[in-house]
Design a protein around this nucleic acid. Structure first.
Length: 275
DNA sequence: GTACCTTCCGAACTTACGTCA
DNA sequence: TCTGACGTAAGTTCGGAAGGT
């Protein structure tokens, strides 16, 4: 997906913001219907990684995609009877602005009883009756293990969640939340990286555009200075102003002949669009 | 076969707490 | 000591997918 992090959400329907780095149809800005945009994932879709030197014309797009990856539930359905954690079915209780999830008490308290005895965190308010939300601070060891686990797989199935929770002396819900937030942070970070990347591309393209405009002006001025019927120096007319290399050769019949195919600038492969 | 409902899950968004400069 | 910024744990809402009827 996005080069660094394999995110299955990138597949599927996309709103592609192309940067016209290639001449492929991917450069076309494809609007998506509002219904699709409603639940969107702002991602940058790059078929190839940033550093792919083998890709002469990287396709850089900013895509709104719809997730189509197989749902985790499919592979682990009903493995975990404790994981009936539907937010829809969860009963939320409000008490002086503090909110608590009832399901943490009902569903996960079973396994939480042993773990919370060790950690004695995140449930103090549940035990003494107050509803003040206390902020859990994970220990270094817990964070390290979670990170390690996240590196292996960014999503957990219930069994993995249970095992990890037990190992960390946390509730499965806490592990789940940590992974959710971790995925969100990863995505945010990647989005920032992508944003910077797009900015740089935009700057490069702007510079290149400016240079080409200037080049065009020079050519126009040259054309006006030399009457068309006068014999012109082939070297002057076929010289690339960018690299000052003589072009054409035997195949160059007309000094103003156009290239058969538009030559798009590729900031990754060529420093100059003309050469 | 399909329309509807239920359940489950993840993403997105939001809130609130702890830390630190 | 106060305060605002920041990081992050946790709550809420919503939509999609799958299974059952």
């Amino acid at each position: 997906m996005m080069g660094l992090h394999q995110d299955p959400t990138d597949s599927g329907l996309q709103l592609i913001l192309g940067l016209a780095l290639t001449s492929t149809p991917q450069d076309i800005i494809t609007p998506s219907p509002p219904s699709i945009l409603h639940h969107h994932h702002l991602t940058t879709h790059r078929p190839n990684s940033y550093s792919s030197k083998s890709d002469p014309e990287p396709s850089l797009t900013l895509a709104l995609s719809r997730q189509t990856y197989p749902h985790p539930r499919n592979k682990l359905s009903s493995e975990d009877p404790l994981e009936h954690t539907s937010p829809h079915s969860a009963i939320s209780s409000f008490s002086s602005g503090r909110v608590k999830r009832e399901r943490d008490l009902s569903c996960e308290e079973v396994d939480a009883t042993e773990t919370e005895r060790v950690s004695s965190r995140a449930s103090d308010e549940e035990e003494d009756g107050t509803t003040a939300r206390k902020k859990l601070r994970l220990t270094k060891e817990q964070s390290a293990l979670l990170e390690e686990s996240f590196k292996q797989h960014s999503t957990l199935n219930p069994k993995q969640k249970q095992a990890l929770a037990k190992q960390l002396s946390l509730r499965p819900r806490q592990v789940e939340v940590w992974f959710q937030n971790r995925r969100a942070r990863t995505k945010l970070k990647q989005t920032e990286v992508d944003c910077e990347f797009l900015k740089k591309c935009c700057e490069t393209l702007t510079d290149e555009n400016r240079r080409l405009q200037k080049e065009l002006q020079e050519l126009k001025a040259l054309k006006l200075a030399q009457p068309l019927y006068m014999p012109m120096s082939a070297a002057t007319l076929t010289m690339c102003p960018s690299c000052e290399r003589l072009g054409g050769g035997a195949s160059t019949k007309s000094p103003f002949s156009m290239a058969p195919k538009p030559h798009f600038f590729n900031p990754f492969a060529n420093p100059s669009a003309a050469c």
